[in-house]
């Protein structure tokens, strides 16, 4: 079963391009945990290491040193193959830049993670339709993603993150390109995922996010270290 702490980082360091001239130490000895069914916000100025931290939680890469345990699985020093497996079983990622494949429709984009799992087209559509309905996107189902507005795109991104029904949702600046009302909607949506029993980690410097009533904690990152953690309202 899932442990109490879905995310456990102990003295985690992440160095990009280690040993090269353009070496960057993006995270330094960071330790923190996120409990199951908790919603936390990672805050910090640009370049402070938010995306790096979220990528670690999202099993996109392993830390350079330190221990990282996601959903009970130790991901430090793991071959790519296993990292990818944990990534698709444990986490759903909502990107800062949507990261949609422009030549595909909404439906096709959402079901991309299901292809290598061998799920039949019928089942894929059924799963996707349920999510599209939930996020009010049914009428955009067969649109090209290039025809959608920013708010719609962000909802498509959330739907895609949920397609494998992961226990952890990671969202990197989900409100960056949205206006106030839409931002509020998106955060509400993410909060509703927490209400379903998922763990949600959001990186943002948007006050609408950090001030959301469902936010349990706010983690302040600066230059790759955790400055302080505040509990939410």
């Amino acid at each position: 079963m899932m442990p109490d702490n879905l995310v456990e980082l102990q003295a985690v360091t992440k160095i990009y391009n280690q040993g090269q001239a353009n070496e960057v130490i993006a995270l330094k000895q960071v330790s923190f945990t996120v409990a199951r069914n908790e919603m936390v916000c990672v805050q910090g100025p640009s370049g402070s290491g938010k995306t790096t931290l979220l990528s670690l939680i999202g099993c996109i890469f392993a830390p350079t040193s330190g221990r990282a345990t996601i959903g009970g699985k130790k991901i430090s020093r793991l071959p790519d193959h296993f990292l990818t497996r944990y990534r698709r079983e444990l986490t759903g990622f909502v990107f800062q830049h949507y990261n949609m494949l422009d030549h595909l429709t909404v439906l096709e984009n959402i079901t991309l993670p299901l292809l290598p799992l061998g799920i039949s087209p019928g089942d894929r559509v059924r799963k996707a339709d349920r999510l599209l309905e939930k996020f009010g996107l049914s009428h955009r189902r067969n649109f090209s993603v290039t025809q959608l507005s920013g708010g719609e795109l962000q909802r498509v991104a959330i739907a895609r993150a949920l397609i494998n029904d992961p226990p952890i949702i990671v969202a990197d600046e989900p409100t960056a390109h949205l206006d106030g009302k839409l931002s509020r909607e998106v955060v509400d949506m993410l909060a509703s995922l927490r209400d379903e029993g998922r763990t949600v980690v959001i990186a943002s410097h948007d006050p609408i996010v950090s001030a959301h009533p469902a936010m349990a904690r706010i983690i302040e990152v600066r230059d790759g270290i955790i400055l302080h953690q505040l509990s939410g309202r």
């Binding site: 996109i60 790519d80 193959h81 990818t84 497996r85 990534r87 698709r88 990622f93 990261n99 949609m100 494949l101 991309l112 993670p113 292809l115 290598p116 895609r160 494998n164």
Partner: peptide, 15 residues
């Protein structure tokens, strides 16, 4: 970009 997105969405190198 396409490959990176697919991989991030859980496609393995072998896929």
């Amino acid at each position: 970009k396409e490959v990176a997105i697919l991989k991030i969405l859980g496609w393995q190198t072998s896929d």
